[in-house]
Amino acid sequence: MRLSTCAAAITTATLFASCLATPTPNPADPIARTISDRIGRKKQQKGEKEKKPSTKYFHEPGGGNKLGHYDKRYYHGIVSDEERQDTQSHMIRAYLNFFHEQELDTWIAHGTLLGWWWNGQRLPWDYDLDTQVSDTTLHHLGEAHNQTRYAYNSSDGTVQREYLIDVNPWIWERERGDGQNIIDARWIDIRNGLFIDITGLSEIHPDTHPGVWSCKNYHMYKTSELYPMRETMFEGVAAKVPYDYDKVLVDEYKVRALIETDFHGHRWDTEQRAWVKKPETVEEEEQERKKKEEEEKKKVAEEARVNKSTRES
């Protein structure tokens, strides 16, 4: 082999070797030790954090769709579908009346707005109701109306209820923070703990993003989508909705929410102009109810047997 070829071959071989030579972890290495130390320390810190008292203000009896929509203080068990619907329809009327009487600004949002879009009513499967307010209104609510109760009389005079306005002390924080207090205030039915979630919108970056309004859960809205608001009717009372309501809905729920007529066990009935439970859903629920009853019967029977046997002995 000629010298030049030889040299080239050796160079290639050495380069290839250096490519392969990736560092392997060596526990004895001093640098590696510090890294593992650091990971250990981080873990420790995490453990400490978990031990720290929670900053959460509003408490629910549990998570998930079933329990996550009750206030812990007023919760006495999951209510029936009928009771929830009745509670919600009076609750939102009371809420809108109160804001109208106090000349405070509020509008309906999220799933509640979607319900309004379909037929001016709540979506029957919705576990909670959502409204929004501007941050100035939110602060006023905190200063003037926090912890006050509102006595409600339905327009036909048959229903009397009482609602608590509970404003989160963390409303001064307008960013998400630790994510424990993204709901700014609640309108709570003190009979069963069901509530309306009230979130405030603020221009969190008026310098870099003027005209962009955000809640603490990072739902963003442009001023031109929200204002000027439109006055409309919701559940039979005057309510406000954002100026460009379609865009707000499509941004949050995608176009499917405006065209899908089969959702959550319900079907859109064009003639009744309402969402109705599908027969399958009704059947399923009926079966579930029967199962529960049977189980309870069994329990009672078993208890009786146990009692009997103890008495006999």
């Binding site: 037929n119 001016g120 006055e231 409309t232 309501y245 065209i259 007529t261």
Partner: peptide
């Protein structure tokens, strides 16, 4: 089969 516009038209004051 599923298209926009099966909802009740929103009613606005004024």
């Amino acid at each position: 089969a599923k298209s926009y516009g099966s909802n009740v038209r929103p009613e606005f004051n004024g």
